[in-house]
Write a protein that binds this DNA or RNA. Structure first.
Lengths: 121, 121
DNA sequence: CGGGATCCTAGTCGATACTG
DNA sequence: CAGTATCGACTAGGATCCCG
């Protein structure tokens, strides 16, 4: 169960390079609820700009986590959905969310203590 | 088991803000092997600069994931070790590493395909 | 509607030099 | 040894405009 080796840590870094940016997990989580169009997705992820939604989706599509379907109607219609690989990620995200929920208070308290000590200097 | 709600996604973003940077997980993984001094840690994490190791350790200490002990000897000696909270993270990191190991080939293949299609334009 | 192309800023990171 | 301070490069991300 040891984690101390270069190979494993590189694996983790790869993962974080994939989903550690500002928007990827938010998009993935929304798509976990089902297929969404570009506009729907943008409305579902408050604060994301058009540009960042596009960039994020392209990266996820490139990695095979998200599928893109274009319907040649006018105006254009584009559906986004998680692939099987993408869906397999939701289990992991659940794990992250659970850890965060469980330890948030402790972490916040630690920060408050730290910042107070900082202030004291 | 749904992930689609703002609260959960914020939890995950908090987590990623905490460990999603370039060095945090690498430091955590090294400390998972036991207490280390500053220099030992720097040698254990190839490529990390003095500055980034300091910054990373300060952040982790502020969040209560890493403990710091100073021995007032000359020259100074400082030990770093995971707290209980920090140690609880290793289970999660194991999950990330496992996912990465299992899906790396698929993801890489998807990228190659994407980049080839890109080239074709 | 679903983007692409540009421009710009704020923050991250690395390199280097210095200190107790 | 264990840092702090400074500078400069790079880049993620936001704002805006335009197009089919």
């Amino acid at each position: 169960m040891s984690l101390t080796n270069t190979e494993v840590t590189c694996d983790i870094r790869e993962m974080l390079d994939r989903i550690g940016d500002k928007w990827s997990v938010l998009v993935i989580v929304e798509l976990a609820g089902g297929t969404l169009r570009f506009r729907q997705l943008q409305r579902s992820v408050p604060g994301i700009s058009q540009r960042m939604l596009t960039l994020t989706l392209r990266r996820l599509e490139r990695d095979g986590l998200v599928g893109r379907t274009v319907y040649p109607t006018v105006p254009a219609r584009v559906d986004y959905e998680l692939t099987d690989t993408g869906r397999s990620l939701t289990r992991l995200l659940r794990g992250l969310a659970d850890w965060a929920a469980e330890h948030r208070d402790t972490v916040v308290a630690s920060r408050v203590r730290w910042d107070a000590a900082e202030q004291a200097r």
